[in-house]
Nucleic acid binder design. Structure first.
Lengths: 160, 160
DNA sequence: TGCTAGTATATCGTGGCACGATATAAATAT
DNA sequence: ATATTTATATCGTGCCACGATATACTAGCA
């Protein structure tokens, strides 16, 4: 039976969530200033930033957004209504739908993403450090030291 | 006029959001297994994990959740309906409402938080490292090296 | 002491979001 | 040719978040 969590542990979990939340909501604020809902910006970003070797299909986007596929379908519906994206049926597999940005979506995405890149420089490192500091504090989590996983190499180097 | 963002930059932003999203949704899954909605778990956690020296008032909770105060009011309404929390009027300032956990809420929070602490050990460090790695790679953001805020100890070096 | 300004919470209408259940179409396996 | 699997789509439902607006309480000031 696991031990009861202490107040310090609850506070550490809460602080972690607060920092992540604050960081994400900064981006949401910028998105809403351009007329985009937070999830809409995220979908545009996931379409534009789909990993190499993948296509922006409903199922791939569902995976990247960590949502059930029909939630993505409905999100795309709403985006189509605003002319941010369009659907087209895949030639290779006619069950699949490819989602691509329309110029309006591309432009709005760029405005938000520009801002987000700037903010990442300002606060992204602080977020990473805050998370690492919270994890490092062994006392916050059962008083035992956490063994940090060794990070992999940078993204660009991974792909050959 | 800022330069156009490259595909690599979009991919880096998208990857960052994917990792954060994946991490958060792990917790959501555990929360929903206990019958809690994601935001409900978060509210319970913010009440229990309020920083020392603060009280769990609507305005303090709104700050910790990075929400408008009336969104917190409505969230508390829904939680009260489930007997997870209760409101009480502050003696010191009768405008303020103090929110506290009821036994049912406390129990559900503990179940989820226990699981989250375990998962933090497993994936929290990976998240921090992923964020740091994405930020560190200067090419992903305008090809210029980002000057990392100096962490107390280097992430990689901290623990072997 | 009374009035004004500021602060904290509450309510309502509205639209976005997410899911489970269910359905259809296409591809694959047998 | 049939059965199974996979991809997307639709609907009902409840949760979430905000702007606009309202009420109650506290603090400051003349």
């Amino acid at each position: 039976m696991p031990k009861e969590l202490s107040t310090a542990e609850y506070q550490a979990l809460a602080e972690l969530r607060y920092r992540i939340r604050k960081f994400l909501r900064e981006g949401d604020t910028v998105a809403s200033e351009t007329g985009l809902e937070p999830q809409q910006y995220l979908l545009l970003l996931m379409i534009r930033g789909i990993p190499n070797g993948q296509e922006a299909t409903v199922s791939n986007l569902a995976e990247r957004l960590v949502l059930k596929h029909h939630s993505v379908v409905e999100l795309i519906d709403r985006m189509e209504a605003h002319s941010y994206v369009r659907r087209s049926r895949s030639r290779e597999d006619r069950r699949s739908v490819l989602v691509s940005l329309l110029p309006r979506g591309e432009k709005l995405l760029e405005q938000v993403a520009q801002h987000r890149v700037s903010e990442l420089r300002a606060s992204g490192a602080a977020l990473a450090n805050a998370i690492a500091a919270l994890l490092k504090n062994g006392r916050a989590f059962h008083g035992r030291r956490i063994s940090m996983a060794r990070p992999r190499k940078g993204l660009e180097k991974r792909r050959g």
